[in-house]
Design a protein around this nucleic acid. Structure first.
Length: 944
RNA sequence: GCUCGAGUGGUGGAAUUGGUAGACACGUUGGACUUAAAAUCCAAUGGCCAUUAUGGCCGUGCGGGUUCAAGUCCCGCCUCGAGUACCA
């Protein structure tokens, strides 16, 4: 009987599905363990071999944990809202839900072939109304909350209203809009409802605001910062422009500090934590207000607020710079400078973001003609505008200290502005001195002689005294724009009364996505939902619930934007705990049992997107008392990308000749991608198949070497457009899912990017066949195990393997455990081992990696139940005959000797041997011997 | 520029965290079985030198250092990759 993986794999996949083998039990007596994968967006291209890498790793770990006696939750679902299905709809008219359904079916089929132990009963889809009901629900909770900075916690908006009624907002410390006015209780109570609502919007955790957004005309939508790469859209590479729009935003900045601090609570890769901390970009400094000086043109004085990390250098200010977009620019510019300033503002606004980024070197700016008063010296400081100051960071204005900042220095030199030196003993004739640790301040009034720390402290207290500033922490992180002008996303549960947003009542959720005629913006430029005709009907239904606000006659407009891609993915991990619940987002029993994700595996590309937003939502839910942990994923691993090995043919320029790689020798050639499936493992191109694939080369001349056309190779990202995609289905067909699973693990460390090479799979395939043969040592390869007691040697091999495999899995070194299995099977084969007491535990060991073959062997060993919850074999050190170890000791590279001794003994032996050696050596060198100290198991230390 | 990370055979990668570098696998070469191929099995495989078996020297990006002992630790470079970018 040979290893027929096709039959075996189909059989066990059917068995698992029928018996619901991997169903996670809510509230089981067993200890819980939650293993989560980042759920995929079901794209039309299907899976390539790179996609399942993380899923295989998590599956191995989940299966291992089941063997270790845990009640494992290992769910899967789909992030099924998204742009590609919508774009396909625009092109073809096919409803995105149909496209999505088809793609999901294909994904499911591909996933099933790989033998994952997912609990499919818990599947979620973000585009399913039963699911997005709860995405909308969270949105409402955010809308009804504000952030109390004094408690560092989200609170009910009702509570805020009560405070406003009693004492206004003077005592409130909240995360709110910058432009929130101060008001008293009396003033609040006098306001009409609309005005009150407008003020409340400045406090709500999700709010409507005019924001400058990244507008992508080609995609017809707004993009978040993390959806833009190098100034163009991540998807499609279209240009992006800045545009002002009214949008929903999420007040994630309220949580900036907690998002940084709590990184300490999680076991995540340091690089990912760094990326998040950088993205949030905390900087400590002060906010300082400079007042403009009244002039002939301008009698009034305006305050200009700046943020600086170097308040200690305030006496070195020789000018101020505003971003060209700063709102004060038009107000303070003098008649004389008007023309120059306006033309400069014109030029900079025309420059695209991309140009601005590309051109960092050239220094541009214009003088406004206005001056500000220095808060301490009273000197007049010229106010400039320059595009090196960004409107979007801090206050869009800086106090320029050329002595301490290189950009200010360059600007000053370029425009002949003085550069006062405020650093003792530092030469600033060539460049600015930005190292704050290494100097003391001088020429700075009351700050003279102080270092950075002391001066900063002192200046802040002085600023506070004169009311011109205070210490401040600034974050790079912006509030997250939450509106998208798309069809295929969650509708907002929002309607408008007199321009004021209202939430649809919770019992009326979900507000389902309506049908539309076309998926493009309306003729009047409204988002695609504006095309829906059935929404007014929906609204009338709402009256049943919201009868105070909606009657049969009045139709209130609904929000026409939809939510962004990250909305649905910010809560799915908790929803898996209780996915069918239609009354609550999840029951308290479910969340209290499953608590949080123990292991989360996914790609690092979500570092500043999904992984940040979902932490924010979790913290909010924690504040609301809905979840027991402030962080939802205790441990996270980023699996590395599997890269493709692209193949190239080389066309000689200006000809239709394709030159074999070895014959290029300086010829001018254009490399062209060739589909990797047309190339043999020895890099030979199948010319006939290639011509069929690319009819334009039907008449091309192929210049061969040794009768072959040899392609060039290059490692690139695996992608359809590079024709280097390897399909897992084909691998499964040829070698089986078990071989694919083991090979993906064998390729290299989980977290590292590594190139795919199909040829290498023969090694693990041969291993599986050898493993099979180990259990089929009977005549003609029939199944045979012996009941005899195993040889010592075999026991040693087994226990060595148990130890290593367990250690490897715990450390996620799956690649080395595959090697361990190979060694194990080779040794057992050589020993002609067929003992049941060896082969039974071996099947369990292999089972997380190659579950199908393990189940089959387990059944043949006479077991009726699935192998999946069999206890993991116990390692017993006694079986390792290897209870002594050789300690090599070499001195000077010349003398070399080895001591063999038991592991836990032999201190004296080592000591005396080393001592003897040391004595000889000391004698040779004519000195007294050093003391020799031997640490058991840790070899030797010599102390002088 | 800044912040992380990595450089080991022809290739992917091991190395008990300071203790015999190159496990395991691919590839290559030779052999067995076969009419042949596939499959399978065996042997060799870092480089150089020597050879009658035994051996010798060099070797983990480069240059220093610590140590009896360095791929591993320290200092200074080089190269590549990822993230971020006029962040005040």
């Amino acid at each position: 009987m040979s290893y027929n993986f096709r039959e075996i794999e189909a059989k066990w996949q059917r068995y698992w599905a029928e018996k619901s083998t991997f169903k996670a039990i809510d509230g089981s007596e067993k200890e819980k363990y939650y293993v989560l994968d980042m759920f995929p967006y079901p794209s039309g291209a299907g899976l390539h071999v790179g996609h399942p890498l993380g899923y295989i790793a998590s599956d191995i770990y989940a299966r291992y944990k089941r063997h270790k006696g845990f009640n494992v939750l290992h769910p899967m679902g789909y992030d099924s809202f998204g742009l590609p299905a919508e774009q396909y709809a625009i092109q073809t008219g096919q409803h995105p839900s149909v496209t999505t359904e088809t793609n999901i079916a294909r994904y499911r089929e591909q996933l099933d072939k790989l033998g994952f132990s997912f609990d499919w009963n818990r599947e979620v889809r973000t585009s399913d109304p039963k699911y997005y009901k709860w995405t909308q629900w969270i949105f409402i909770q955010l809308f009804n909350s504000w952030y109390d900075k004094s408690k560092d916690k989200a609170e009910e908006i009702e509570q805020l209203i009560e405070i406003f009624k009693k004492e206004g907002n003077v005592n409130i410390k909240a995360a709110c809009d910058e432009d929130t006015p101060v008001f008293t209780a009396a003033e609040w109570n006098k306001l009409n409802e609309k005005k009150q609502e407008e003020l409340l919007l400045k406090y709500r955790l999700t709010y409507l605001a005019d924001t400058v957004v990244n507008w992508c005309p080609a995609l017809g939508t707004v993009l978040a910062n993390d959806e833009i790469v190098n100034g163009v859209s991540e998807r499609g590479g279209h240009p992006v422009v800045r545009k002002k729009m009214t949008q929903w935003s999420m007040r994630i900045t309220a949580y900036a500090q907690r998002l940084i601090d709590d990184l300490q609570k999680v076991d995540w890769p340091q690089s990912l934590k760094d990326a998040q901390a950088n993205w949030i970009g905390r900087s400590v400094g002060a906010s300082v207000t400079f007042n403009t000086m009244p002039s002939v043109d301008n009698q009034s004085s305006y305050p200009i607020e700046v943020f600086t990390t170097r308040p200690d250098t305030i006496f070195g200010v020789s000018f101020m710079t505003l971003a060209p977009e700063h709102e004060l620019v038009s107000k303070i510019t003098t008649q004389e400078q008007k023309e120059e300033v306006e033309s400069y503002v014109q030029i900079t606004s025309k420059r695209s973001e991309r140009d601005r980024l590309a051109d960092v070197k050239s220094i541009t700016g214009a003088f406004t003609g206005a001056y500000a008063e220095h808060p301490f010296t009273g000197e007049s400081i010229p106010i400039w505008i320059g595009d090196y100051v960004l409107a979007g960071y801090g206050t869009g204005a800086v106090m320029s200290v050329p002595a301490g900042d290189q950009r200010d220095y360059d600007f000053a030199k370029h425009f002949n502005i003085p550069v006062p030196n405020i650093f003792e003993g530092i030469d600033i004739s060539e460049e600015a001195f930005a190292n704050k640790e290494l100097t003391v301040i001088t020429n700075s009034g009351f700050l003279n002689g102080l270092d950075f720390k002391e001066a900063t402290k002192k200046v802040i207290s002085e600023l506070e005294k004169i009311g011109s500033g205070q210490g401040k922490v600034n974050y790079r992180l912006r509030d997250a724009v939450f509106s998208r002008q798309r069809y295929w996303g969650e509708p907002f549960p929002v309607y408008y009364v007199d321009g004021i947003p209202k939430m649809i009542s919770e019992e009326n959720l979900p507000l389902t996505l309506p049908e539309v005629e076309k998926y493009l913006p309306t003729d009047t430029g409204e988002p695609p939902l504006g095309n829906a005709s059935v929404w007014s009907w929906d609204i009338k239904q709402c009256k049943v619930v919201d009868n105070n606000l909606i009657d049969n006659k009045t139709v209130f407009p609904l929000e026409l934007n939809t939510m962004p891609g990250w909305a649905g993915s910010s809560q799915y991990f908790n929803r898996y705990m209780d996915p069918e619940n239609n009354k609550e987002i999840f029951s308290q029993e479910a969340i209290n049992y499953w608590q949080q994700v123990n292991l989360y595996i996914g790609g690092v590309e979500h570092a500043t997107g999904h992984l940040l937003y979902s932490r924010f939502w979790q913290k909010f839910m924690f504040d609301k008392g809905l979840v027991p942990y402030e962080e939802y994923a205790r441990k996270l691993i980023n699996q590395g990308m599997i890269l493709g090995t692209s193949a190239f043919v080389y066309r000689e320029e200006g000809t239709n000749k394709l030159i074999s790689k070895g014959l290029i020798n300086g010829l001018k050639v254009t490399p062209l991608h060739a589909d990797v499936s047309l190339v043999s493992s020895s890099d030979e191109l199948d010319i006939a198949a290639f011509q069929k694939w690319r009819p334009e080369f039907k008449d091309a001349e192929f210049v061969l070497e040794n009768g072959k056309y040899i392609v060039g190779r290059e490692v690139e990202k695996m992608s359809k457009s590079k024709y280097n995609v390897v399909n897992p289905d084909e691998i499964c067909e040829e070698f089986g899912a078990d071989a694919l699973r083991m090979y993906e693990m064998f390729l290299g460390p989980l977290e590292q990017a590594k190139p795919w090479n199909t040829a290498g799979i023969s090694g693990v395939y041969a291993f599986l066949k050898k493993l099979w043969r180990l259990y089929h040592s009977g005549s003609e390869g029939s199944f045979h195990v012996s009941e005899e007691l195993p040889a010592k040697e075999a026991l040693k091999t087994l226990h060595k393997t148990i130890k290593k495999v367990e250690e490897d899995i715990e450390q996620f070194s799956f690649n080395t455990s595959v090697a361990t299995f190979m060694i194990c099977v080779n040794e057992l084969s050589a020993q002609k081992c067929s003992n049941k007491s060896i082969l039974e535990p071996l099947a369990i060991l292999v089972s997380p990696y190659a579950p199908h073959i393990a189940e089959e062997l387990w059944e043949k060993l006479g077991h009726k139940e699935s192998i999946s919850t069999e206890p993991f074999p116990k390692f017993e050190a006694d079986y390792l005959i290897e209870n002594s170890k050789e300690y090599p000791i070499s001195f000077n590279g010349k003398m070399r000797f080895t001591i063999e001794l038991p592991l836990d003994m032999g201190k004296e032996e080592i000591e005396s041997a080393v001592l003897a050696h040391e004595k000889t050596k000391a004698q040779l060198q004519g000195r007294t011997p050093k003391k020799v100290i031997v640490v058991p198991g840790k070899i030797v230390n010599i102390v002088g």
